[in-house]
Design a protein around this nucleic acid. Structure first.
Lengths: 225, 225
DNA sequence: GTTTGAATCAAACGTATGTTTCAATTTCTG
DNA sequence: CAGAAATTGAAACATACGTTTGATTCAAAC
């Protein structure tokens, strides 16, 4: 009985594993395109050119594999968000709203476009958000909690006078647009008959930031700002 | 071999079936809470107090059951949207943006709150949006196409000068916020530590409309309106 | 009261799945 | 090079699933 090495986040320098990475890549792709349940370990290991037992050797179970697939990218993604927020707050004590929204939104869009398999991952996370299995959803949400705390504070300072309840709702709406766009941008292509190009993340990012800032700055109903 | 009666949409006056409705209700609930794949016909029929074979007798297959669950509410929901848009356009030839957005957003929120099982259904649809199985996704999108066509025209007239590409993207962002809110409003409750109340659909609707109109009216970047 | 078709039921079928096992092999280490 | 540990491999296991079958109950029609 051999214990596979720790690799928790993708930060460790690839250790020695190839099979392990192949499994994560294949699983990510298939989870996104077929769903966690429909993607069988047999199809995953076949795609990764590994033996069926490799999943249990390297991860212990299918559920643990799902967790690893999520954790591998979610950690770095949220770290990037926090780092960009740090930068924005360093520049001016009261950064522009556009910079805050950008720090929240752009890392996701960039990951989709630039990282190999990013598209599949975004779609997978989008799925996981509405995942009924609490274990998986909590895994995403726990990674998300610090981000929510930091960004809601930043929003609060950038939008003085906005009631906290209103602010959290607007944050919620923001997350919705962001997730829908990062994970399901192809729907915009489909529904606009090819007019919208989800590959052009710079354009999409600009548009999304503009839209969200407009919404975040809207006059609060029933409240005198 | 007996052919079960037509009930396509929920419009037919309940025909004579009880088991059939029980199956749809139970399936809707379990699809939302466990996902289509994890919800077995055995658990569905148990919840509906029906026999295992009843699903195949009344619907033919599990996939057909999924389709029925979707179609039962999706048709009326989108009809309601179109009717409200008609009313808004009848009132003034150029209705206020708020009225258009409301016609798009409120039927979903109201269904969640007012119809029995509406919450479960919204969550299920939210899942289906990111469903990898094209057959299910297309079922949702096909029901959605006329709505998109009508509303994008209305938006276009309410927001003159906005390039069509920008307009479709903003519609896309709008859908994201709406779906995220109708299906996953409980996340706002969780992430705001109980500050946001997803049950208060009047409040949520007002906030969502305000937010979306702010975003839709934002100055388009890179374009002189 | 018998007949007919719809609806329900218990039981089984075939298959695909996650998991386990243990031998074979490769890779590192002293 | 020898030995130990890590990794891969082929096969089997138990289980849960969607589906099918054929008998049975039930309600109305004649």
């Amino acid at each position: 009985m051999a214990e596979p090495l720790d690799t928790s986040t993708g930060n460790t320098p690839a250790a020695h594993a190839d099979t392990r990475t192949n499994l994560l890549d294949a699983a990510e792709h298939l989870f996104a395109h077929e769903g966690v349940d429909r993607a069988s370990l047999r199809s995953i290991t076949r795609a990764a050119e590994a033996n069926l037992a490799a999943v249990h050797y390297h991860f212990g179970s299918k559920e643990a594999l799902v967790r690893e697939v999520l954790a591998r990218r979610l950690g770095p993604l949220n770290e990037r968000r926090l780092r960009l927020l740090d930068e924005a707050e360093r520049d001016g004590d009261n950064p522009r709203l556009e910079a805050i929204v950008g720090a929240f939104v752009l890392p996701a869009l960039e990951m989709v476009q630039r990282e190999r398999g990013g598209h599949a991952f975004a779609r997978f996370v989008c799925r996981t958000f509405s995942e009924p299995d609490e274990a998986f959803r909590d895994l995403v949400l726990d990674q998300f909690r610090e981000v929510v705390a930091r960004f809601s504070n930043a929003f609060e300072r950038a939008l003085p006078g906005l009631p906290r309840e209103e602010l959290f709702w607007r944050f919620h709406f923001t997350v919705g647009s962001m997730v829908h766009t990062a994970g399901l941008g192809f729907l915009a292509y489909q529904l606009s008959d090819g007019l919208c190009d989800p590959e052009d993340i710079e354009g999409v990012g600009e548009r999304l930031i503009g839209f969200l800032c407009g919404g975040l700055r809207a006059k609060a109903v029933g409240h005198e700002a």
